[in-house]
Nucleic acid binder design. Structure first.
Length: 270
DNA sequence: TGGCAGGGTCATA
DNA sequence: TATGACCCTGCC
């Protein structure tokens, strides 16, 4: 569970203890405790929400089989072993878009803090087990705020991007909920119309909220570890790594990226 | 205490 | 196509 909650793909999970995390998923509060391969979930949701929760955690996918497939790339076996138990979540595209706009040139602690402040300021309170949580605001909530107000959430120069992207989504200029139905190339093209969204952020949005597993988002960690594994530790352009990964991993690229990211960040370069 | 890096993007030349 | 600026924070 820790690997999922702290894997850098979702920013609204907080650790209670080593096996227990509490997260906000749309309007649901999930208090999740892992016991062996079982998840015990306390939630404000109802029985109707079970399928949504299963979908969010991608529980219907056989990750044991997936890890076996990934292990056919011998050079990444250490990463697959280290990151065993990783999953790719199925999150809300709008929330994921804003979260990864904030992620640019930022660190995970800052990203989480800023998102939390945005939710407290613009979202709605959700009361659960004596605590108050906040939902992620809607596109129009953020489109209608002013830049200076947004800046108080410490998002810095990204305030302009957040507001303008929110406006484009609220106005339907980019139909973000429709993009899961179009090709990866088309989806990327649409997402990159949003200010603050470049290739990397667009690919993260597609991977973590649209199940486009053929993308391979390259950040500083992935760049470093790919250079170590495949490019003799030499400085290599992102474009070159991108092309290399596309040819090598194909439709497994997104999964490889997630296993490598966790490995690179927490083990290889620590 | 100051410099630097952090899941990049954008504007400029 | 290549460079530097950019908010803010935590770390060394």
């Amino acid at each position: 569970m820790g690997i999922i909650a702290e894997g850098g793909q979702a920013f609204r999970w907080n650790r209670i203890d080593c096996n227990r995390y509490v997260g906000v998923v749309d309007e649901l509060i999930l208090d999740v405790e892992q016991q062996a391969d079982m998840l015990i979930i306390d939630t404000n949701g109802t029985i109707e929400d079970i399928s949504k929760i299963k979908d969010y955690f991608d529980l219907d996918r056989d990750y044991h089989l997936l890890e076996k497939q990934l292990s056919e790339y011998e050079e990444i076996i250490p990463a697959v072993k280290f990151s065993s138990g990783s999953r790719i979540l199925h999150q809300d595209p709008w929330e994921t878009a804003i979260s990864f706009i904030i992620s640019a040139n930022n660190n995970i602690r800052n990203i989480k803090n800023t998102i939390e402040r945005i939710c407290m300021r613009y979202g709605s309170p959700i009361y659960f087990n004596g605590n108050v949580f906040y939902s992620f605001p809607t596109p129009s909530d953020l489109a209608n705020t002013c830049e200076d107000d947004l800046r108080e959430t410490k998002c810095g120069y990204r305030a302009k991007y957040i507001k303008e992207s929110a406006k484009m989504i609220a106005d339907g200029i980019v139909d973000i909920y429709e993009l899961k139905n179009v090709s990866t190339e088309e989806g990327r093209k649409e997402l990159m119309k949003l200010p603050g969204v470049g290739r990397k952020v667009a690919d993260c949005i597609m991977l973590f909220s649209m199940r486009k597993f053929d993308v391979f988002p390259i950040d500083i960690w992935i760049k470093r570890i790919m250079e170590h594994i495949y490019f003799d530790c030499k400085d290599t352009s992102i474009e070159k790594i991108q092309e290399f990964a596309h040819v090598k991993y194909g439709n497994l690229g997104g999964f490889v990226q997630q296993y490598l990211f966790h490995f690179g960040r927490l083990k290889y370069f620590s």
